[in-house]
Design a protein around this nucleic acid. Structure first.
Lengths: 199, 199
DNA sequence: ATTTTTTTAATACAATTGTGTTAATATAAT
DNA sequence: ATTATATTAACACAATTGTATTAAAAAAAT
């Protein structure tokens, strides 16, 4: 009957507008009206897709992690494990404008999640998923004998995540001293250090 | 003549109230009125110490880094370099409630600084100071032959800072998997890796 | 005790916020 | 063309925001 618009697509359009507002002016300026204007629709209209601001934030935060997830799942796993590991880690630091944008927004949401339990749940879930992905690739490195079987996989996964997130944070905040080339080198060096037996 | 109150002390009292509000409810709720109430004074009264909210934020952010600085300067430097290095790094991660509180607030300000140039300047300055402190301790480790003189001090300082900030971030956000004991171990392991010659 | 000056309290104001409500519009099926 | 309905625009409302102003209160010097 009426004007059929892709509901899901429209929500994504609005969420991406929210990202742009957050990047440009901070999450404290991501008001309903500002996001609607950025999305090119009326504020009242936006309420049709997100009846509350909390919903919009939750959806926008979810969409960030989903995008990263999709890129990771799109990686080819039919390759030597070290190559897969390298590409996996590279998806978790801001190497290009797209991932940089996502991670700036992610940092804003993560920071807000410290005092917002609803966002906190999602942040924790994503943290766990990432850690598990890292544990799996480490396990594979051990099984294919690229890494020593002395390696404590679970413990190393936490260390890896800490290391990678440190690189990502500095890549975001201090890109002059931590440009993409430096991030890649630090990731490569780290993976190389894992490949030496008996570390 | 009139009621003499320690102006500087009062500003600190207000800034610390701002910290508590930021920790409890996020920086977006650190309004003039909320902070004044937390400090136990009237909103109009607070304007005598901070005529604008931007001033309050700037002062509060400065106070955080000053506290960390003061603790670092209070360290005894008349000791074996590796001990000094260990204690220096331990001041840069949330090992106790005091530093945890400071760093939670610091993360909030740092995150806000991404879209607030005024705060950004201070964040960058502190980043440089910390990196230089790390470079100095690394230089000392080389000079006293605890570390190989092959070590590129400036490059390693960036790596060290990235590593330490990663630990601090995970200590803040995921204290279950990154408790103080784990942070200490990761710092110790890192320093030990520097002490092996020819790395 | 009086005076001087800092500090506080109380209000005011326009702007912006999140959230509702309601009337108008546009679109696709009949 | 008519109709049914999804979509939009416009406005309303109370709450909160930063900032400003003004009168009351408090305290220390004389």
């Amino acid at each position: 009957m009426p004007k059929i618009v892709d509901h899901a697509q429209q929500k994504i359009k609005v969420a991406e507008a929210a990202w742009r507002v957050i990047r440009r002016s901070g999450i404290e300026n991501a008001s309903v009206r500002n996001v609607a204007q950025e999305a090119g629709i009326s504020p009242g209209s936006m309420r049709h897709y997100f009846s509350t601001q909390a919903e919009l934030f939750s959806f926008s935060m979810n969409l960030v992690s989903e995008r990263v997830n999709q890129r990771i799942l799109k990686l080819s796993f039919e390759r030597p494990v070290p190559e897969v590991a390298r590409d996996l880690l590279r998806e978790m630091v801001p190497l290009n404008e797209e991932s940089r944008s996502e991670m700036e927004v992610w940092l804003a949401f993560t920071s807000k999640s410290m005092s917002e339990p609803s966002l906190r749940d999602h942040a924790d879930r994503v943290y766990e998923e990432m850690r598990q992905a890292m544990a799996r690739i480490l396990q594979a490195m051990v099984e294919y004998e690229f890494a020593s079987d002395n390696l404590n996989v679970e413990e190393e996964a936490v260390r890896m995540q800490t290391y990678v997130d440190g690189i990502a944070l500095h890549g975001l905040l201090y890109p002059d001293r931590m440009p993409p080339s430096r991030m890649e080198k630090m990731l490569d060096d780290y993976l190389a250090s894992l490949c030496k037996k008996e570390n």
